[in-house]
Design a protein around this nucleic acid. Sequence first.
DNA 1: TTATATACAAACAAGAATGTATGTAAACAA
DNA 2: TTGTTTACATACATTCTTGTTTGTATATAA
Lengths: 206, 206
Amino acid sequence: MVRKTKEDAELTRQRIINAARTVFLTRGVSRSTLEHIAAQAEVTRGAVYWHFKNKTEIFYALRDRAFLPLIDRMYDTLAIQTDDIDPLTQIENSLSDTINELNENIEMRQIYEIMMIKCEYVDEFATVLQQILNNCSNITEKIQLAYERAHEQNLLTPTLTPHTLALDTHLFFSGLLHMWVKDADGSRFRHQAKQLIQSHINLRRK
Amino acid sequence: MVRKTKEDAELTRQRIINAARTVFLTRGVSRSTLEHIAAQAEVTRGAVYWHFKNKTEIFYALRDRAFLPLIDRMYDTLAIQTDDIDPLTQIENSLSDTINELNENIEMRQIYEIMMIKCEYVDEFATVLQQILNNCSNITEKIQLAYERAHEQNLLTPTLTPHTLALDTHLFFSGLLHMWVKDADGSRFRHQAKQLIQSHINLRRK
DNA sequence: TTATATACAAACAAGAATGTATGTAAACAA
DNA sequence: TTGTTTACATACATTCTTGTTTGTATATAA
């Protein structure tokens, strides 16, 4: 029974992507073979090769489904300028939202885990790392702008500049994401991630 | 020309470990074969199998040479109790020392890079991740003790508890290490790592 | 209605990587 | 001096994995 409709084919494609997520997560990207992925998706390698050039392209598809959307979302949350909410709370919310999304969205969580501790950034994957770094820079810039607004509104302790505060926050959040992902049983960081974010921001409030 | 002395054999062993470092760094752990490593060390796979059971054991040897010593060193620096130096500066120094070591010691730097972005933490490697997490907990505890001393000496802004401060610092430093490693050209974080540490601590000073 | 393109399955060929088994020359012990 | 062990090199067998090729039933366009 072959030759499905376009809708069926798209469904197969999605099943392959989802299968790859499961397989990557348990075996790591390198040790995952197209046969593993095909079996998990209940198709043959023929189907996988029809939809994707190779394993790398499946990885890219996975990244596009989770990593980029979450970055965009964070970026957007930070970029909004409103008077309803003070800039510090805005930063806090955007960080918390990201953690929320990871908590509630299994797919997101698993893809992040794959990208952080189940993937080796060499050759074709090295470019992915550069893209991540660039996104980080953009996020940091937005955070800095928010801190500048906070500074104008006289909300900050006068110790550091908005630029330095933004870098510190970025590093804090990078660390949090990494530890959040690694803390699989949730005992160390996951259960208190939001309080940690709140504390981090409170340390800056006048 | 075979059958070297014990000293020669130990030298071969070290050459294999060093070769593995180079190969892991450029090809990632998974894509590195024992043939690659042997070639880089200018021996045959026979020599490699003589000294190591498999690739995993070489990886462990690498970790033992860099990761554990640096953790221990940081731990020791934090554990010292002295009146010469205030506890906040002590934390700052221990973080800076670690960055210093990474700056000056190519071997350390490369092994950290391998462990952070050139290795997939699945199967045999998953246990390594747990060990790292445990070490992190110990470090955080030591940082907390230092903050408690700082609190007793009335050096801290009263916003957060020593416990929360320690977690925030730990997350900051985790993020810094990750970005430091990923920032290969040094333009984003490496050149200002020490200032960032100093700022991070200054934010806590009364 | 028929020709063609689609969406796969199945088979094939080739290379890579691993682990092991065997060979061997020199160091070392007795 | 000789036997044994060490420290490898070499050869072999096996398994895995990949990419490609071929086959085919059916949706769809003309």
